[in-house]
């Protein structure tokens, strides 16, 4: 049994400790956002946040994750209450097939938590580990820029209204 903290909730996982996190998220915890793309850490579709950093979950064995904070796209918000990155991707219609998009959202979330007002060069650099095949790149760029705006507004709002971090 390994205890994994996913989106703020502890899960007891009964799986081979070598199992890459991706399969535990998808098959044991029945979460859809992280996707199998290559299993080689080359395409970024399986990305999740571990302690705030984007990692390729397809080559991350759960044995190294005990006591660490895992976040997935499911933890960024819901259809009814989307987080800023999710809202931005919806508003920019930044998807075609959408398969790679959760991975991009994770890269974007990590970037924006670290660098709230990234330059285009910083966005490109942060998204380099992720592959998109439909050619949605330009909309993804726009969505990340828009998300940066949302997050800043949200932070500003949070600070001025109640002084607490709403996240």
């Amino acid at each position: 049994m390994i205890t994994l903290s996913v989106n703020g909730r502890d899960h007891q996982v009964d799986a081979d400790p070598a199992t890459p996190l991706l399969y535990v998220l998808r098959d044991d915890l029945e979460m859809n956002a992280a996707k199998f793309g290559c299993g080689l850490g080359q395409c970024g579709s399986c990305m999740v946040l571990v302690d705030g950093a984007p990692v390729v979950s397809c080559v991350t064995p759960i044995v190294v994750l005990e006591g660490r904070a895992i976040r997935t796209v499911e933890g960024l918000g819901t259809v009814d209450d989307p987080g800023p990155v999710q809202r931005a991707f919806m508003e920019e219609q930044a998807a075609q097939c959408g398969y790679c998009i959760p991975g991009f959202m994770i890269s974007a979330q990590a970037l924006l938590e670290r660098t709230p007002s990234p330059s285009d060069a910083e966005i490109r650099d942060a998204l380099k580990p992720n592959l998109c095949r439909c050619g949605t790149h330009m909309r993804i760029m726009k969505a990340v820029r828009r998300a940066a705006g949302f997050m800043q507004t949200a932070d500003a709002g949070a600070t001025t209204s109640n002084g607490e971090d709403r996240r």
């Binding site: 400790p17 070598a18 199992t19 890459p20 299993g39 080689l40 080559v59 991350t60 064995p61 759960i62 044995v63 190294v64």
Partner: peptide
């Protein structure tokens, strides 16, 4: 050895025989 488990989940896919590469 705990690192053997890490190797099995993180490295073996490519570095053990029979892998994709």
């Amino acid at each position: 050895n705990g690192a053997a488990t890490v190797y099995a989940g993180a490295c073996a896919t490519c570095h053990e025989p029979g892998g994709p590469l």
